[in-house]
Amino acid sequence: MRFYLLSIWIIVAGFLPGLALADEPVIAVIVSAQAAYTVPVATNDLASVYWRKKLYDNHGKPLHPANLSSDHPLRLRFSQQVLHSSPRSQVGYWNEQYFHGIQPPYTVESQEAMIRYVAYTESAIGYIDACKVDERVKPVIWVTANKILGEAPALRCSTATP
């Protein structure tokens, strides 16, 4: 009986949240598919790019990261997993950067707007639901429920985010 209760507790406490996380869409970090506009992004550099600490690529081209709006579910997850903080807690940081003349990443309202911005802006970087990637953009990094990967994971594209 004790073993039975322990098993249920393990399932409830550990396994069910895992299932819930498994339903989180994989986020794809995207760059333009056009050779003239694309830019290489290393997994290690992703946070520095979005904190605007790394401003240039290795050819001296200025990087143009873009964010979804601060209440978008993908923005919240991206911020949590890549920047280890919520958009709300970053207000002070961006005020500080403004004081040093640095602007926060450009903000777009939807994933389609993100695709268009990234596809047609030189050295732009963005992120969308990995299931929404199309031929206009190229995914380079994938953010799963608990990892940041340089190679594409297996995708289940039955559910879609707004």
């Binding site: 949590q80 997993q81 280890h84 903080s85 919520s86 807690s89 970053q90 940081y93």
Partner: peptide, 8 residues
């Protein structure tokens, strides 16, 4: 930190 309330 990985908590959802984590910050800098």
């Amino acid at each position: 930190f990985t908590d959802e309330n984590a910050g800098l």
